[in-house]
Design a protein around this nucleic acid. Structure first.
Lengths: 330, 330
DNA sequence: CTGAAAGCGCTTACAG
DNA sequence: CTGAAAGCGCTTACAG
């Protein structure tokens, strides 16, 4: 039942444990013949090195910590998919850490550091620049490589993979203005954080360029709370367009509009961000900014492997391309 | 920068490292006064035990492996949420293992075992009884506790947490028949596996009880492939009802029906399984079997902790309650 | 209640 | 190219 150890292999192959270790880690240093003999025994015994012992001896765990603040976000699963695929390729394991809502983030991160991960991936959290700075310092103090995935910050020293949210917000707004919207609203989350702020800046810029008044509505990310909020909206406001920071908010807004007799897209144009399944399954199908979520995960993980191995990295702030997926709502 | 070790603490507190270890693991064995002194030093130095060294020495890693075959499934994120919350409560870390599509599952599991996890959670995979049996034997051989979450099997010795899919399928079908559907189809995945097979059995039973002919359509789980498939459907078939094994399939079928001029629910009743956000955001809103996905994750993890600690478990096959969330499509 | 010592299963200079 | 030995940072009988 309990699996074979390196001693068992050494004994059966008639070599020292050091040689077995070399066969696994530095095969070129072992004579071909010996190597084959050891490899044969390894296979026969079904030996797999105990990664914990290896981790302690080598001070490398080949494990990365993935920090997730809100696991229910639609993008998390896809991002994890990208991370996982690349991690597998480079033989890294993934330890997942969900940070509970109202906990001390820095303390939670200390614990993650104590887990001896070789690097940390910090996923699309609702962080502002100050938060990022605090977290960055903590990682630096502990000398642990890190990458922020889908978190934006102005600090040029922070490794980041994301899209240009400012530009995306700008382009999407321009696009909808060109299609005729004038009373174009921007629906964002109540809580302010950098990713959504960037989208909003782009929106505001585009509106002003067209001499239109930016109108920002802050609402809950929770679609079930949105509905009553949106209901009151149509009673007292003129509105012929809406851009929401998430597809789910866009769809929920659109559904309320439809229930209130608005025609989409002729009377009201709607668009979202992320291009999730919601956008495709909605009727009419939702126009949305396509964000390469899987790629953000994959590229982040790739960047982290380079950082962990002290490889030369030309650019630690990667911007991935986005595009407007135009559908029936605009 | 590099954090303090147990030696540093012992030195600063004027005790042996054994005592420091006891303060952490068996505090009742240490004199109050000594304990306080050690605790104070621990806090001052910001000492956190190296979990890798602890794992090697104690042969317990307080880490569980979570095996996920298809991370893009809508339910995975929620299930991970439940798992994570309970794991945190019992101080377990989570290592995530995505099993690549066409890989050798048993070999992948061997690797997970080599990671020295204390237990394994196997998430809602598309497994049949034979697969489950193979996997179970592997875990047993390696003497590692495990729980299958949202996987059903007839083997009474396999710890499982899920809902009664047979009953759910039966009840949902009955419900829709009572509302008048006669040509009621069942849309399931091309690949056969136990969870969907159970739903189908329940459907078939209910249809036969009402002297209606069961009609099962196997289609892709991929909604983008479904559409052309469904298009041909309305050309040559009478259909006044459809139950799909997933919400996304149900919505995609309904949308095609709507495009083909069918009225929902008067001419066609539609229902799905899982009660995801898709069901709520769809128009008309979809009737669906509510599956407590978060709870399945949480209860699985709780069960696993008991198994890992050799606690008495009254029932290793937990069935959680489900209900029919009736909405506008039926 | 506390300490000295062995051991967990590996890696890695250091000799040879 | 290979082996003996130290060490990674802990836990845990065993003495006292």
């Amino acid at each position: 039942m309990s699996s074979a150890t390196i001693y068992d292999v050494a004994g059966a192959a008639g070599v020292s444990l050091a040689t077995v270790s070399r066969v696994l880690n530095n095969p070129e240093k072992v004579k071909e013949e010996t190597r084959q003999r050891v490899l044969k025994v390894i296979k026969e015994l079904g030996y797999r090195p105990n990664v914990i012992a290896r981790g302690l001896a080598s001070r490398k765990t080949t494990t990365v910590g993935v920090v997730i603040s809100d696991i229910t976000r639609a993008s998390v699963a896809q991002m994890l998919g990208g991370i996982s695929d690349i991690a597998q390729k480079y033989k890294y394991s993934i330890k997942m850490f969900a940070i509970p809502e109202d906990s001390d983030v820095l303390d939670a991160l200390q614990n993650i550091v104590a887990e001896q991960v070789d690097g940390i991936l910090y996923l699309n959290d609702e962080l502002n620049d100050k938060d990022v700075d605090l977290i960055k310092r903590m990682f630096l103090d502990n000398n642990i490589p890190f990458v922020f995935a889908n978190v934006v910050t102005n600090d040029p020293s922070v490794p980041t993979v994301s899209i240009d949210y400012y530009k995306a917000g700008y382009e999407l707004t321009k696009n909808i203005i060109e299609k005729g919207a004038k009373d174009l609203y921007f629906l964002t989350t109540a809580r302010r954080y950098s990713v959504n702020d960037k989208k909003e800046e782009g929106y505001t810029k585009a509106m002003k360029e067209s001499n239109l008044e930016p109108k920002v509505i802050r609402t809950s990310g929770d679609t079930s709370i949105n509905k009553p909020h949106f209901e009151t909206f149509f009673a007292d406001k003129n509105v012929d367009g809406a851009i929401a920071v998430r597809d789910s908010i866009a769809v929920s807004f659109m559904n309320t509009a439809l229930d209130n007799g608005k025609k989409v897209p002729s009377e009201l144009k709607v668009a979202g961000f992320q291009n999730t399944k919601y956008a495709v399954l909605a009727r009419p199908q939702l126009t949305s900014i396509d964000i390469p979520v899987y790629d953000i995960g994959a590229v982040s993980m790739r960047l982290l492997t380079k950082l962990m191995n002290n490889q030369e990295v030309e650019n630690i702030r990667v911007i991935l391309p986005h595009y407007i997926m135009e559908r029936q709502t605009t």
